[in-house]
Computed example of a mutant assay.
Amino acid sequence: MNTEQTESSTQGLSQILPDGEQTAVWHSEAGFAAPTSLEYADDTMRADQALKKMRNGIGLLWRGDFQNGRQLLQALGRRLDRKTKADHGAEPIAARFHRYRMQQAQRARLLGLLLIRLESDNAIALRRAPAWEQAMLQVYGSEHPPMLVSLRELLGVVGAYEWRRKGVLIADCDFRIHPHYGVFSPSRAEYLALLMQAPLPDNYRSAVDIGTGTGVLSVLLAKRGITRIIATDSSPRAVACAQDNVDRLGLADQVTVQEVEFFPEGCADLLVCNPPWLPGKVTSSLDAAVYDPNEQMLKGFLQKARQHLKPGGQIWLIMSDLAQLLGLRAAHELTQLFRDNDLRVLAVYEAKPTHARAGDRSDPLHEARAQETTSLWCLAPIDTEN
């Protein structure tokens, strides 16, 4: 099979299957390249045998019972996880982080080589295959040729569909947010609580939410009485997701969603941003919510904020100190960025994380996660009186 890497997260390559049957298109939401060769696999294949082939770059197109294929994927994951945990010793936290991230990327690449053929109508022609057409429709659409996709990706699509259908209950609030596939779910309740905790001046009527994602921050601001909110994001999926949530909650009169990289035209009383918290290279489309290459989003927001702020307005920045704890950012680098952009700190509201990984001692990064603090920085231009 001739293959090549494309820049998009969805690659379109016509592939000839091993026995010369109908062609299919390679498709990877994570942007992974197609395997260098392809073989069929069925219920007789053992996990050790499959892993050996995968390490040689061979994609395994599953032809057996669907549920058995799912069990094989789980067995492969357990083997790779044992290797990851065994490799981490007493090395410095920064080196441990880089090694852990490299291993996680390798894990995702290998597990992504167990493949399923998805028909044009989003059906899976395997024994005991579930009817997941509705979940597939929301990600892959209704018009596409037969596709080869990773089983791991399919399970992620279905999991996201269930989150979208049921919604995520926002802590201490009376509403749910419905995340779409490829849009980061608001699972960190502590930063949402900080946004509700910070005092909001009575005369503030307008706000801009940069990198809105699901739109959850815009919804919270609307609930707090801001009457004109513009939520922006450069991702079409995030824009569609935010608009869906705004419409579900009946807030379309208060919140306008726009596909914009940073700021819309005009100025507002309040500028809010929750950028990715870790500086680092994005190796797949799914990394974009966690890693900010060269801190482009953080720096871009701080550099341009003054131009879009009304007199007497504030800038609210949500950040974690996990990058400092991992040795990815110097201790005073963030506050230096504020000074470099002529911004002063009005107040800082802090909270400790409550998610499960913060207490998981088996996590190679537990040392840093246990100390992490999430902060809401309230900023204003130095020449502005509060």
Rank of each mutant, 00 (worst) to 15 (best):
R306S: 12
A252G: 10
V348K: 15
Q296H: 10
L322R: 02
S320D: 04
G312L: 05
L325N: 04
Q324T: 12
N341T: 09
V282D: 00
I315A: 00
P276G: 04
M319A: 07
V290P: 00
A323Y: 01
G280E: 04
A289F: 03
L278R: 04
G280R: 07
Y349L: 13
D269E: 12
W277Q: 02
A323D: 02
Y349P: 03
E261M: 13
T283I: 11
A268G: 09
L298T: 10
P264E: 11
G266L: 12
M297A: 09
W277M: 03
L346V: 13
E265N: 14
H332V: 10
T335H: 07
Q258E: 12
V257L: 10
E350N: 12
D292P: 04
L322D: 00
C273I: 07
A323K: 01
I318Q: 01
I318C: 05
A268K: 05
D253V: 03
L271Q: 01
V255T: 06
Y349T: 06
F263S: 05
L270H: 07
Y291G: 00
V282I: 15
P275G: 06
M297K: 04
E295S: 15
D269M: 05
T335A: 15
L271I: 13
E295L: 11
E333W: 10
N294R: 14
N341S: 09
L325T: 02
L346I: 14
D321W: 02
Q336I: 08
V260E: 08
T335S: 14
E261R: 14
K299M: 14
L343W: 08
Y349N: 07
G313R: 02
Q314M: 04
H332F: 07
Q324G: 02
V255Q: 01
S285V: 07
M297F: 10
L298M: 12
I315V: 14
W316F: 05
R306H: 11
G313P: 02
F262H: 07
D340E: 13
E259S: 10
M297P: 01
H332K: 12
L271A: 04
K299D: 09
E265R: 14
E265Q: 13
Q258K: 15
F262N: 06
R344Y: 03
L346A: 11
L302E: 04
L326Q: 05
A305W: 03
L270F: 08
L271H: 02
N341E: 11
V348R: 14
S285Y: 11
E265C: 06
N341I: 08
A289K: 00
L302C: 08
G266W: 06
A347E: 15
P264C: 10
H308D: 07
G266N: 09
Q307G: 06
E259C: 12
A305I: 05
S284G: 12
C267Q: 15
W277I: 00
Q296I: 08
I315G: 00
S285H: 11
L309W: 02
Q303A: 15
L325I: 04
G300A: 09
G300D: 08
E350D: 15
T256H: 09
L298V: 15
Q324S: 10
G327Y: 07
N341F: 13
F262W: 13
A305C: 11
R344G: 12
L302D: 03
R329D: 01
W316S: 02
P279G: 08
A288I: 13
V345M: 14
S284T: 15
A289H: 03
A305M: 09
Y291C: 00
W316P: 00
L334F: 04
E333L: 03
K299E: 10
Q324M: 13
W316E: 03
V255F: 04
A323H: 01
